[in-house]
């Protein structure tokens, strides 16, 4: 029996994300948490992954610890293979060179459509306004496999989004292709602070694949405004290892600006 290690829900979320990336592939990295996920993945598991930032940093090896806010600054674009600009960055994704994309979301629906624009009210006068697409729409439209990463709060899982910022499977099988989006693309996983979701191959609906070991499935489903499909069986995800936590806490985010959160287990 390994001894129990304390960790936060955010740390678990980041670690789950980092375990998903395959080595030798390309990863279009969104702003914020995805940057930290990419750093941890590259540092521990996938040394040969090539990151791409939307303003044209190709293959950066960001300086640790992580510097927040300034994705375009010298620390985050350090030791890139190439420095370009936005039209070229989206060329890499549009032409099919980006295997994975990773994005945050304020709301997500059963087909993996993302809202990162606004909540409540109308678009013109919403109750809450967020950053909007940025390059998220391009990432979700172009990348072969899009990974959504978000805190597991039930109210964020809704049957219908307040605003569809970045496309998942839209309203079901074949809808992306019908809309003119590139064939064979779409959301791949939804990584949360409690579990991991995929998408059913036929219905394209969100499917609970695994939950953090020790958490009952009903706790993960609780509060979600739609009921996802359940894998048979729903698996158990390992909590963060001591090594994962050490790299996160000592090398990537010693100020604990990103990784703080609710304490788990």
């Amino acid at each position: 029996m390994p001894r129990k290690v304390e960790f936060t829900d955010t740390e678990f979320m980041i670690v789950q994300g980092a375990r998903l990336i395959e080595d030798g592939k390309t990863l279009f990295v969104g702003w914020g948490i995805p940057q930290v996920v990419a750093m941890l993945a590259q540092r521990l598991y996938v040394p040969n992954v090539t990151q791409l930032f939307e303003f044209g940093a190709v293959g950066p090896r960001p300086v640790l610890p992580f510097v927040r806010g300034t994705m375009g600054g010298p620390q985050n674009t350090y030791r890139s293979l190439q420095w370009l600009n936005m039209n070229w960055a989206f060329s890499f994704s549009a032409a099919g060179y980006m295997d994975y994309g990773m994005l945050g979301a304020a709301q997500v629906d059963p087909y993996g459509n993302i809202n990162s624009t606004c909540l409540g009210g109308t678009f013109e006068k919403p109750e809450r306004r967020f950053a909007g697409s940025g390059g998220g729409n391009q990432v979700a439209s172009h990348c072969w496999k899009t990974i959504i990463i978000m805190k597991h709060e039930g109210r964020r899982f809704v049957p219908k989004l307040d605003f569809l910022t970045s496309p998942g499977y839209l309203d079901g099988p074949g809808a992306r292709e019908k809309a003119g989006l590139p064939r064979g693309t779409g959301p791949y996983r939804v990584v949360t602070s409690k579990g991991l979701f995929g998408f059913d191959g036929e219905s394209r609906r969100m499917t609970l694949l695994s939950v953090l070991r020790g958490i009952p499935v009903r706790e993960v489903l609780d509060g979600m405004a739609f009921r996802p499909l359940l894998a048979d069986p729903v698996g158990e995800a390992d909590p963060p290892t001591e090594e994962e936590l050490r790299v996160l806490r000592e090398e990537i985010d010693p100020g604990r600006f990103i990784i703080r959160g609710e304490r788990m287990l």
């Binding site: 697409s133 172009h142 569809l164 970045s166 496309p167 839209l170 989006l181």
Partner: peptide
Amino acid sequence: PSRDLLGSDNMKV
């Protein structure tokens, strides 16, 4: 032309 924005609410606004 491009192959994004399609299917999203950005098209409406």
